[in-house]
C-alpha cells in the first residue's frame, strides 16, 4: 500500500451531515424592491439627494415658508444689481428684484414642468414600449418605427418649434406636452427591451399554462417585472425636463415673462454678467443642484435595482 495512487483518504466525520437540501430561512423576506430599499438606505448620497429633492418640493408647494419678499412686484430700480443686504440675502437682479425670492418661487415652475413632462413622456413611452415588446410582430415594427421618427428629432428643437407656433397657448401644461410628447422614444426603447426580456422568462410560459390570458399575463407578471427601469429613467427624465424648461426659457420661448423661471432669470442676467455675476450664478446653482439631485437619485436607483450592476460593485 505504499503506492500513492492506491492510497485511500476518508475525511473524519466531524459534524452531523445535514439532511439534503434543508430549508434555511432566516431574516426578513427579500425580493427586488426590498433588496433595493435595504441597499439604498445605507447610502449617504441617497439621503443627501433625497433631501435636496424634498427641499425643492417644499419650495415649490410652499414658497412663503422660505421668503416673505415677493419675487416680482416690489422691484425697485434703485436696487438694481445691488449686493446682499439684511432681508435680501442674495442681492438684487438688474430690475431690482430679490434674487433669493425669485429662486424660491421659480422652483415650482421647474418642478411642475419636470414632473408633468416626465409623466407624459414616460407614460407614452411605457405604453408604446410595453405593447411593442409584448405583442411583437407588425405591431412592434409599426410602433418602433414611429418611435424612431420621434427619436430622430431632438426634443428641445421640437419644443422650440411647438412653443413658437402656439405662442398664445404657452402654459405649464402645453410646455410639458411639447417636451414629453417628443422625449418618450428613449423610454419606449428601454421598456420594449425589458418587456422582451421578461417575456422570454419561463414564468410567463408557466402563467399561460395555468390558464391566464395573454393580457392578464402581461398585467400580472410582465409589467411588474419590467417596471424598474421606468422608475430609473423617470428620475433622469425629470432632470431632463427641468433642463428643457430652463433652456426654452433661456431662449425666450418658454413660459411668459410673468412666470418665474430659473432659465429666464439666467437669460436676463446674461447682459450684466460682468458687473453683477451673482444674479446669474445663484439661479444657475439652483438649477444645477436640482438637476444633479435627480440624476444622482436615478443613478442610485439604477444601481440598487440592477442585480448585475450590484454584483460587480
Amino acid at each position: 500500500m505504499s503506492d500513492p495512487l492506491s492510497r485511500r483518504y476518508v475525511a473524519p466525520v466531524t459534524t452531523e451531515q445535514p439532511p439534503t437540501d434543508a430549508v434555511r430561512v432566516s431574516g426578513k423576506p427579500s425580493n427586488l424592491w426590498r433588496d433595493a430599499w435595504y441597499d439604498l438606505r445605507r447610502r449617504p448620497l441617497f439621503w443627501i439627494s433625497l433631501g435636496f429633492v424634498a427641499l425643492l418640493l417644499l419650495m415649490a408647494v410652499w414658497p412663503t415658508l422660505f421668503t416673505q419678499v415677493p419675487p416680482d412686484n416690489q422691484c425697485l430700480l434703485e436696487n438694481s444689481n445691488k449686493g446682499p443686504t439684511g432681508d435680501h440675502i442674495l442681492g438684487f437682479t438688474f430690475q431690482g428684484c430679490d434674487v433669493f425670492s425669485r429662486i424660491v418661487h421659480g422652483a415650482s415652475t421647474s418642478l411642475s414642468v419636470g414632473l408633468l413632462s416626465t409623466i407624459i413622456g414616460s407614460g407614452i413611452g411605457w405604453i408604446m414600449g410595453t405593447i411593442a415588446g409584448y405583442y411583437g410582430g407588425w405591431v412592434d415594427s409599426l410602433l418602433s418605427r414611429i418611435g424612431d421618427m420621434f427619436f430622430s428629432i431632438p426634443y428641445i428643437l421640437a419644443a422650440v418649434v411647438v412653443m413658437t407656433v402656439f405662442e398664445k397657448y404657452r402654459n405649464v401644461f402645453t410646455l410639458s406636452l411639447a417636451i414629453g410628447g417628443f422625449a418618450w422614444a428613449a423610454t419606449a426603447r428601454v421598456v420594449r427591451a425589458e418587456v422582451m426580456r421578461v417575456r422570454q422568462a419561463e414564468f410567463i410560459t408557466a402563467s399561460k399554462a395555468v390558464g391566464r390570458s395573454k393580457f392578464s399575463t402581461l398585467m400580472a407578471h410582465v409589467v411588474p417585472n419590467a417596471i424598474a427601469p421606468l422608475i430609473v429613467l423617470g428620475t433622469l427624465a425629470l432632470a431632463g425636463g427641468i433642463v428643457a424648461e430652463s433652456t426654452l426659457a433661456f431662449l425666450g420661448v418658454g413660459l411668459g415673462t410673468e412666470t418665474m423661471s430659473w432659465g429666464a432669470d439666467i437669460s436676463r442676467a446674461q447682459s450684466t454678467l460682468r458687473v453683477a455675476p451673482m444674479s446669474l450664478i445663484y439661479p444657475s446653482i439652483a438649477l444645477t443642484t436640482a438637476v444633479l439631485s435627480f440624476v444622482v437619485l436615478g443613478e442610485l436607483l439604477r444601481d440598487a435595482m440592477d442585480p448585475k450592476a450590484r454584483a460587480t460593485r
Binding site: N31, L32, W33, A201, E202, F203, T205, A206, S207, H221, P224, N225
Partner: peptide, 11 residues
Amino acid sequence: FQDPYGSMDPL
C-alpha cells in the same frame, strides 16, 4: 418546467 430559477415570478 426545467429551470427552477426561471419558472417563478421573482416578485
